[in-house]
Amino acid sequence: MSTTSEKLYRNRRIKNAIALSLSGAAALFGLFWLVWILWTTLRTGISAMKPGLFTQMTPPPGSDGGLANALFGSLVMSVVAILIGAPIGIAAGTYLAEFARKKPIGEAIRFVNDILLSAPSIVLGLFVYTLVVHTTGHFSGWAGSLALALIVLPVVVRTTDEMLQLVPGQMREAALSLGVPQWKVTLQVLYRSALPGIVTGILLALARISGETAPLLFTALNNQYWTADMSQPMASVPVVIFQYAMSPYDSWHALAWAGAFVVTVFVLLMSLLSRAILLRNKASHD
């Protein structure tokens, strides 16, 4: 009797040990790739860094140059995308949290928003091509911004919705019972309380669009030169990376890696920053 139960116990222990070491191995396996990718990007990227990167234009093959026009183009298009996407997103998130919390229409919008959140970004690029490029007749920075704004939108909608739902109901009731109109309650009480969360959402959206390539291919195209005119085709770092990485020139590869490094560092910084804001906010609330 005792031997069989001991055996059973031992078997269970062994099985457990195997399963747990497998899980540890899986974690190592997963981290291994991620560290490898990050390491390659950092090592190759840093060695390709040079002062001219931020001041010179993208070069013709064989010449020396930098990514100034692409960095500027990315910056402009991302900022405009945020300026378009964030206000609409905040408004839509407000609608979901304050007016349509338990209504079918709210559920429908939430559902659609979640789909939009993970929709293939290349499809959004196609959409904007047919909507803007095809009708206006040329590739432009505006079209690129619009495609990026469609990616910003669902991120901001979701965080705004979630953050406003977290604001305690007493705050609303207290303000409303004082006779403050609802729009004022929302703008001055709710937004202030949910601000760190909303800002986090915007930062995450910014991080996400700064590396997006697919939606820009058919909208902003690319530009060899510095342009601040958004009705012209515009360079962006991801598209330049794509073009240069697929090229056979070593000097272009180096620039592509330098661009990859800059984008990666930017994305990681944005994520860290948004994390820090959330943490500080949490700490001050607790």
Binding site: Y225, D229, M230, Q232
Partner: peptide, 8 residues
């Protein structure tokens, strides 16, 4: 800053 400039 984003408008103006001659068309390229």
């Amino acid at each position: 800053a984003t408008s103006a400039q001659a068309a390229d």
